[in-house]
Amino acid sequence: MTRVCFQLQVAPELLDEYIARHTPVWPEMLAEIAAAGRRNYSLFLGEGGRLIGYYETDDDAAAQAYLAASPVAARWEAEMSRFFVGLDGRPDQAATPLTEIFHLDDQLAAAAARAPHEESTPS
């Protein structure tokens, strides 16, 4: 599984409309996101229109390709593109990916693997 986090900038003057467009998202677009193999998908909006997105997928390249070929996603992204500042291309294809530097479960698993195994001593 791959965890993907990305950043976009929503034009501050369009924030209210952007939020309204996501409450709710078109049912057919939700279905396409799921069919592409993206799950646990969230968007977080910060001060000034800073948008952070996160999702998990087994094959991000395949998910990207699926959505790039989807007429539903093309319609959605065409309508959404006007909300973003400094973006060249479709938002779902041109968002700036962020580099993951920490994940709790991964580090706990690595720490457990490094921990010395306690040996039981016979009484």
Rank of each mutant, 00 (worst) to 15 (best):
T2E: 15
R3L: 13
C5F: 13
C5V: 14
F6A: 11
Q7M: 08
L8D: 01
V10S: 04
P12G: 00
P12I: 03
E13G: 05
L15W: 07
D16P: 05
Y18K: 03
I19T: 02
A20C: 05
A20S: 13
H22Y: 09
T23Y: 11
P24I: 07
W26C: 06
E28I: 03
E28G: 05
M29D: 04
M29L: 13
L30N: 14
A31D: 07
E32R: 13
I33P: 01
I33D: 02
A34Q: 12
A35R: 06
A36W: 00
G37Y: 02
N40I: 06
S42V: 01
L43R: 09
L45M: 03
L45R: 01
G49P: 02
R50E: 15
L51N: 03
L51V: 01
I52F: 10
G53H: 02
Y54C: 10
E56Q: 06
D58M: 10
Q64S: 14
L67W: 00
L67R: 03
A68C: 06
A68V: 12
S70Q: 06
V72L: 00
E77W: 15
A78H: 12
A78C: 11
E79S: 07
S81V: 13
R82Q: 09
F84A: 07
F84S: 00
F84V: 02
F84H: 12
R90N: 06
D92I: 04
D92G: 15
Q93A: 12
Q93H: 05
A95L: 01
A95I: 01
A95N: 08
T96C: 08
I101S: 07
D105C: 10
D106L: 07
L108N: 05
A109W: 06
A110R: 10
A110K: 03
A111N: 02
A112H: 10
A113W: 04
R114G: 01
A115L: 12
P116S: 07
H117W: 11
H117M: 07
H117E: 12
H117P: 03
S120D: 12
S120L: 02
T121Y: 12
T121S: 09
P122D: 15
P122Q: 14
S123Y: 08
